[in-house]
């Protein structure tokens, strides 16, 4: 197994009156695409920001560690953290329409990061920035270099954002809902671009999304978050083939699938009853108020993360039993 590039352990992010991310652990290996999936309010975006140490002022990392290429980022002084940002870890944000500086040319915004970290001259940075625009599949890159963001469509702006993020060939690229604000037809192109960059620049991709369709097609491994906790982790194909956590099952049942046996025209998609707001007061499993298969022990405390197989973990005492017997059954047959 490849060495973990990013190793997040027991990460807890706190605001003065709440902790939207609790005891979160996951890893990302070199060259791998890891997806963090969850609905709004599950803490996935805060997790992404915490990796860059760009949390909002009121939030802080109250415990846990983030080890990136052997360095603990949590305790790193600001100056050293700045050295990593944009160079080793880069981020693409959700809102391409507002994430670019409206009064700087797009080329200038790419050159800026190159000059900062690579020590390029203005001329070198310009030619490299044009290469990056080309790599991001922006037509006529040399001409677009001097264009301002407002003249570009959302999809093109997101390509520029990706070109900025990938300019210094970071080891880890974090994409926080990179396609949410975009047209469906553009989404696939943007994800395709990210995936191509991952292969060509040999970087790890951390994909934050609420869209299971995105996950199924592009991710190697999936971390499912609910109310700030990791509830399930699995290789993408296994997760889709046999989801374990009742929340994951609910999510999959609620997603339309092209080759699914049921179509929304014939039958309504199922939904997960209740809302994530019900998680706030629970001391036990945060999903319990919405869970169809909860048992009394779920109420006492958050269920331990149990290992189903080498790469599969789930925080549900009910389904793990099923899974283990399933595994045993497979074992007997073999």
């Amino acid at each position: 197994m490849a060495k973990a590039l990013l190793d997040v352990r027991n990460l807890t992010i706190s605001f003065p009156d709440s902790s939207p991310v609790r005891e979160l652990s996951f890893t990302a290996n070199e060259g791998e695409t890891v997806a963090i999936v969850g609905e709004s309010g599950s803490g996935k975006s805060l997790t992404a920001l915490s990796l860059m140490r760009l949390l909002p002022n009121a939030a802080r990392i109250s415990s846990g560690s983030i080890t990136f290429a052997g360095t603990d980022l949590v305790s790193l002084p600001d100056r050293d953290m700045r050295h990593h940002r944009g160079r080793d870890i880069a981020m693409v944000f959700q809102e391409p329409m507002t994430s670019l500086n409206p009064v700087m040319t797009i080329g200038g915004q790419i050159s800026e990061v190159l000059r900062l970290h690579s020590g390029f001259s203005a001329r070198q940075a310009r030619s490299r920035a044009i290469e990056m625009l080309d790599l991001a599949r922006i037509p006529e890159p040399a001409r677009q270099y001097d264009e301002y963001p407002h003249r570009l469509s959302g999809g093109m702006r997101q390509r520029v954002m990706i070109a900025i993020a990938a300019a210094c060939q970071p080891k880890l690229l974090i994409a926080d809902e990179p396609t949410t604000a975009l047209d469906v037809t553009i989404q696939a192109q943007i994800l395709d671009l990210l995936d191509r960059l991952r292969r060509e620049l040999r970087l790890s991709l951390l994909l934050i999304t609420h869209d299971l369709g995105v996950v199924g097609q592009w991710a190697d491994r999936v971390v499912v978050m609910y109310a700030g906790r990791k509830v399930e982790e699995a290789p993408a194909d296994e997760l889709f083939a046999r989801p374990l956590h009742p929340y994951t099952r609910g999510l999959l049942a609620a997603s339309p699938r092209l080759n699914g046996d049921r179509h929304y025209r014939e039958a309504a998609l199922t939904e997960i009853h209740g809302s994530i707001a019900s998680a706030s007061r629970e001391s036990g499993c945060p999903f319990l108020p919405r869970c169809p298969i909860g048992i009394p022990t779920c109420r006492a405390r958050f269920p331990d993360l149990l290992t189903a197989s080498a790469a599969r973990h789930v925080a549900c005492p009910v389904t793990i039993v099923e899974e283990r017997s399933h595994g045993a059954a497979v074992g007997i047959r073999a």
Binding site: L54, G86, T98, N101, V103, I164
Partner: peptide
């Protein structure tokens, strides 16, 4: 948002203020 982008590039607070915010 673009101020956050500038921070994500690794710029120092001073360059963020002068290059991105002030203008």
């Amino acid at each position: 948002d673009f101020v956050r982008t500038a921070a994500a590039k690794g710029l120092s607070p001073l360059s963020i203020t002068l290059r991105h915010v002030l203008r």
